[in-house]
């Protein structure tokens, strides 16, 4: 890393107060989390924060030198906008450092009522052009955009040359290759979606069973979407990672059960002008948070110090879906 390049910020997930503490202790620069309702895109049972828990979490993180970013990144439902407004007000009252939003109404409310609070554009907004990003920046004062997981590194570099806002990119964890915020695959099978109710593959529609041969069958909304042979790694029950049959062939149509790991591209991402690196996984446990955050802390610091984080990152493979990793579209080979 050259002297003029600023060290990239490590943005880490937290689904519970305990996970937030684990992330702060493991060296996160910033921690993102959400309230326990439909206002965030990880609205799973037992997950997320009450306003009181968030206020305590912010105090803990600040004491450790970490920021807290609150994801209010679903799209406000007609007739219930009050829930989203309240979430923004609560995040500000809890002294959160930034609000991550995608919906125009939520962004407008935050910009108008809490002009001093930093606004980050969620990946759910799927802003992938300089024009779209400039619109959010000019209209709402958005300071950072979380980029969709569909860019190559050269494309990110080109984009950064055309915009004035910071960019944040995913470097580890679940890989979504759809146009985020506009994906309705989950809705077709369950009637619920990440965009409106905050759940992709809602767990009350997920069933697992093993057949007599030891094959694990994953079902979503009554549809069997994948099967895993005995003693082979399994993946999440998401439709985009399901197997489909067409024209006599069965296989993974959109993507395989695999997780993102962009460790080898960190230096390139720094050179491309990226400000922050995001770790996915608010639904994951403390062991994942502590392991992945400390591994990537070492990796980011290693860009400046030359310390080799390779072994620490290699140990993270067991956390990955299907036991497999990819650098995703950052290294596009199909164009």
């Amino acid at each position: 890393m050259s002297k003029e390049e600023k060290q990239m910020e490590l943005v880490c997930p937290a689904g519970t107060p305990a996970a937030l503490r684990a992330a702060a202790d493991a060296g996160a620069d910033a921690i993102y989390c959400g309230f326990a309702n439909e206002t965030n895109a990880r609205n799973f049972p037992g997950l997320n924060f009450s306003p009181t828990e968030l206020a305590d979490g912010v105090a803990y993180a600040h004491a450790k030198g970490a920021k807290v970013l609150v994801a209010i990144n679903t799209f406000a439902r007609a007739g219930s906008i009050g829930l989203w407004r309240q979430a923004v007000d609560d995040a500000a009252a809890c002294n959160a450092d930034a609000i991550i939003a995608a919906d125009l109404a939520v962004l407008e409310h935050a910009a108008e009522k809490h002009p001093d609070r930093r606004l980050h554009l969620s990946v759910q907004a799927a802003a992938n052009s300089p024009e779209a990003i400039r619109f959010y920046s000019d209209t709402f004062g958005v300071k950072r955009v979380v980029l969709p997981r569909v860019f190559s590194v050269p494309e990110i570099a080109a984009l950064n040359r055309e915009i004035d806002v910071e960019t944040e990119v995913f470097v580890f964890g679940g890989l979504c290759v759809m146009t985020e915020g506009r994906c309705s695959l989950s809705s077709y099978a369950t009637g619920k979606s990440p965009n409106l109710t905050g759940v992709c593959s809602p767990p009350d529609h997920v069933d697992y069973r093993e057949d007599n041969a030891g094959r694990l069958l994953a079902q979503l909304g009554g549809f069997t979407i994948d099967s895993f042979e005995k003693n082979t790694p399994a993946g999440y029950p998401t439709l985009c990672k399901g197997q489909f049959s067409a024209e006599g062939r069965t296989g993974y149509l959109f993507e395989d059960p695999v997780s993102l790991n962009a460790f080898e591209l960190l230096e390139d991402l720094a050179k491309a002008g990226v400000t922050a690196l995001k770790i996915e996984g608010r639904q994951r446990g403390k062991a994942y948070i502590a392991g992945v955050v400390s591994g990537f802390r070492r990796a980011v610091d290693g860009l400046a110090t030359g310390t080799d984080a390779g072994p620490a990152i290699a140990a993270l493979k067991t956390f990955s879906e299907g036991g497999r990793q990819t650098s995703g579209s950052y290294k596009k080979t199909w164009r």
Partner: peptide
């Protein structure tokens, strides 16, 4: 909290049956 439940599920060391949402709520 020594182990991550999702990772154990991926490796098939952990098996769940029945109402997934209940298991998730208990885990969290």
């Amino acid at each position: 909290g020594t182990y991550d439940a999702d990772a154990l599920f991926f490796t098939r060391d952990l098996k769940i049956e029945g109402r997934t949402e209940h298991v998730l709520a208990l885990r969290n």
